[in-house]
Design a protein around this nucleic acid. Structure first.
Ligand code: NAD
Ligand code: NAD
Lengths: 219, 219
DNA sequence: AGCTATCTGTGAATTGATTCACAGTGTGAA
DNA sequence: TTCACACTGTGAATCAATTCACAGATAGCT
C-alpha cells in the first residue's frame, strides 16, 4: 500500500479512461507476478499496455501509487492498489439479461475466470431457456427479475437482448435497482443520471474497422 | 475501446469518434426512413443518439451535409452522405479468425444483416471446425490464410482467438495484408503504424461496469 | 411582403485527456 | 561515502473533443 495518502483525502474522481486502463494494468501485472517478477518500470508497463511511460505514471499517481526512482514500482503493491480502486474489495455480482448466442458465449467465458466479477443470474423470456442452468449460470424468467436482483443485491447487468427490446428492458432493470450496464445492443440507452452505461457496440466497431480497411496504408 | 492509428489519406481527416457516431446515425436514419419520415432536426437525431444537437450538427458538417433552418436535414441525403464516407460505396469483406463461442455468435449475427460489411471467410486451427460452413461462413485452416486473404482481397479481420495467441496471429495477418482489426482478445496488440486496431475489450468493460455499480454517482 | 419563431452553420471558448520536460531522488557501484 | 545515473512525480503545455453562443437563414403566418 503505497497510500499513506488515504482514500478520503480527495474523493478522487477517477476518469473513466483511467478506470479502463487500470483494468488492463491489473491483468498485465497479475501475469507478471505469476511469472515471478516483483518490480517494474513505467516504460515496461507502458510497452505491455501499448501506451506511454508518462501515461502509466499519471495513472498510477491517480490511484496513489508511488515507485522508487531506481527500482520502479512494486508489482504486488500496484495490484493491491488497483484492486482497492476497482473492486472495492468486494466481488461484484452481475446479471446477464438475454441468453442468446452472445449471452451464452459470455457466460461460457466468464465461468471460472475473473474472480472479482461473477455472473450470478441470467434472465430471458424464452421458455426453453428458463429454469435451466446454462454454462454454469441459472436462467430465470424475466418475471422474477425484480425479486432475484433485490435478493442477490445485484447492481450491474450485461444487456444482450435484441436491439428493439433493449430500452424497455433497461427501464425495467433501472427500476429493479441496476446501477450499471454493459450494453451489447447497438442502440444508445436513455437512463437517469447516476446510472452508468458502457456500450459494447460491435456494429459501430465493425463500421470503423471497415472504414480504416479502405484507408491506404503506408509502408 | 478504439485504439491508435495515424492517418495519411489526403483531404478531410475525420476523427475516429465521429466515424463511430456516423455509424450510429446511419442505423437510426435507416430506421426513420423505413418508418416514412423524410426530414429531421439535429435535436431529434441527438435525442435518438443520446447526444447533443451541437454534436450532431458538427458531425454532419464534417461530412459536408447541410440542412434547412426551418425543415432540418433531409434523411435520404444524410444516409447517402454517411454511406459515401463509411462504405466508400464498396461492400467490405471481413475475415473472422477464431471460430470459438464468440466467433460463432458473431457469424450468426452478421449473416444477412448490414449489407455493407460481410464475413466472407473464417479461419481456425481446430481440425473439427475446418472445411465446414458454420453459420453461413466457410471455415478454412489457418494454413490457407495468406492465400484466401489475398485472393479475396480481404483487408479487415475480426480477431477472436485466445488472448495468448492474439499477438502472433495478428502479426501473421498483418503480413497477409490485413489493415484493420476488430480485436476481441483482452490484450493490446502491437502493430505497425498505418494499421488500425479497434479493441472490443469486454473484460475491461466489465471491470468498468463493476466499478460504477459501486459508485453512488454520476454517469 | 413583411414579421417572427426556430432552426442551421460555425468561430470561439471550454473542457478534458495526454504528453512534455525537468527537478528531485534512491540505488548500486566504486 | 560519495557519485552518477536512470528513474519517478508532477506542474505546465499541448492537443483533441465537445459545447457555447450567436449571426444568418427560411418557412409559415398574417
Ligand atoms: N451475436 C453477436 O455477435 C452480436 C453482434 C453485435 C450486436 N449484438 C447484439 O447483442 C444482442 C444479443 O445478440 P444475440 O446474437 O445474442 O441475439 P439472440 O437473438 O441470439 O439472443 C437474444 C436473447 O434475448 C432474449 N430476449 C428477447 N427479448 C427479451 C426480453 N424482452 N427480455 C429478456 N430476454 C429477451 C431472447 O429470448 C434471446 O435468448 C442484440 O442486441 C444484438 O444486436 C450481437
Ligand atoms: N466469449 C466471450 O464472451 C469473451 C469475452 C471476453 C473476451 N473474449 C475473448 O475473445 C476471444 C475468443 O473467445 P472465445 O470465448 O470465443 O474463445 P474460444 O476458446 O471459444 O475460441 C477460440 C477459438 O480460436 C481458435 N484458435 C486457437 N488458437 C488459434 C490460432 N492460433 N489461430 C486460429 N484460431 C485459433 C480455437 O480453435 C477456438 O475455436 C478470446 O481472446 C477471449 O479472451 C471472449
Amino acid at each position: 500500500m503505497t497510500t499513506t495518502t488515504p482514500r478520503h483525502t480527495a474523493a478522487p474522481t477517477i476518469p473513466v479512461n483511467t478506470i479502463g486502463r487500470l483494468s488492463l494494468y491489473r491483468r498485465l501485472l497479475l501475469d507478471l507476478a505469476a511469472s515471478g517478477l516483483r518490480q517494474i518500470y513505467s516504460h515496461q508497463l507502458a510497452a505491455l499496455a501499448v501506451s506511454t511511460p508518462a501515461q502509466v505514471r499519471r495513472d498510477l499517481m491517480t490511484i496513489g501509487c508511488s515507485g522508487s526512482p531506481r527500482r520502479g514500482y512494486a508489482i504486488e503493491e500496484l495490484i493491491e492498489a488497483v484492486n482497492t480502486v476497482l473492486a472495492r474489495s468486494v466481488e461484484t455480482s452481475v446479471a446477464l439479461v438475454g441468453v442468446g448466442n452472445l449471452g451464452r458465449a459470455i457466460l461460457a467465458y466468464y465461468t471460472n475466470r475473473q474472480p472479482w466479477v461473477r455472473f450470478v443470474a441470467a434472465f430471458d423470456t424464452d421458455e426453453d431457456k428458463v429454469n435451466r442452468i446454462i454454462n454454469g449460470c441459472r436462467v430465470y424468467a424475466m418475471g422474477r427479475a425484480e425479486d432475484i436482483l433485490a435478493q442477490e443485491g445485484i447492481r450491474a447487468a450485461a444487456l444482450a437482448v435484441p436491439a428493439r427490446e433493449a430500452q424497455s428492458v433497461a427501464d425495467r432493470l433501472v427500476l429493479a435497482g441496476i446501477k450499471s450496464f454493459l450494453n451489447f445492443a447497438p442502440v444508445r440507452l436513455h437512463v437517469p443520471t447516476g446510472i452508468f452505461v458502457d456500450d459494447m457496440d460491435m456494429t459501430t466497431a465493425l463500421d470503423r474497422v471497415a472504414y480504416y480497411a479502405h484507408q491506404h496504408g503506408t509502408t
